[in-house]
């Protein structure tokens, strides 16, 4: 897990569901690259073609609600998204993000599409480099940090099974 990251913001509204992130008809593979070709296809057809490695998603309330499909997190990671910031997360999406090491940052912030953001996961700080505003967020639970620092849930499982 990288502790500091910089990237452009993609602004989304409240209640982005995982059907929006990756429609059901593409749930025929778990491959992040393959899934990323269709990320946000129905709601933001320009997204998959113009997203760049390191970009960030900034959502509102209840980001990632609906289906448990981990494919949503994989599609975002395949597209190069470095972290998802939202006012609140739906719980399965939140768990999937931690387990796969896509940091889910709970923070309410003002941001426009294309703003450049600087995120420090250790300090719990986000700076909007475009308008200069500074935000702080609550640190992840210690168990979540443990999983992300080990490189994801399966590394934790591997260590636990071989201990």
């Amino acid at each position: 897990m990288k502790n500091k990251m910089k990237g452009r913001a993609w602004r989304f509204k409240d209640n982005v569901d995982t059907d929006q992130v990756i429609p059901a008809e593409y749930l025929i593979t778990g491959d992040p690259k393959e899934l990323s070709k269709h990320v946000f296809e129905k709601v933001r057809p320009d997204f998959a073609g113009s997203v760049k490695v390191g970009d960030m998603i900034v959502g509102g309330k209840n980001f990632g609600c609906g289906s448990s499909r981990e494919h949503a997190v994989r599609a975002l990671m395949g597209a190069g998204i470095s972290c998802v910031i939202a006012e609140s997360f739906a719980r399965i999406f939140y768990r999937n993000s931690i387990n796969l090491c896509l940091p889910p940052v709970e923070c309410t912030m003002e941001v426009k599409n294309g703003d450049l953001l600087d995120v420090d996961l250790v300090e719990g700080r986000i700076q909007n480099l475009t308008d200069g505003r500074l935000y702080s967020f609550r640190q992840f639970p210690s168990f979540a940090i443990l999983i992300m620092q080990r490189g994801g849930l399966m590394r934790y499982v591997e260590d636990s099974c071989t201990e």
Binding site: S68, V73, N96, N99, L153, M154
Partner: peptide, 9 residues
Amino acid sequence: GIGSTEAAG
């Protein structure tokens, strides 16, 4: 409900 990776876990 959980994700696929944690089901594997």
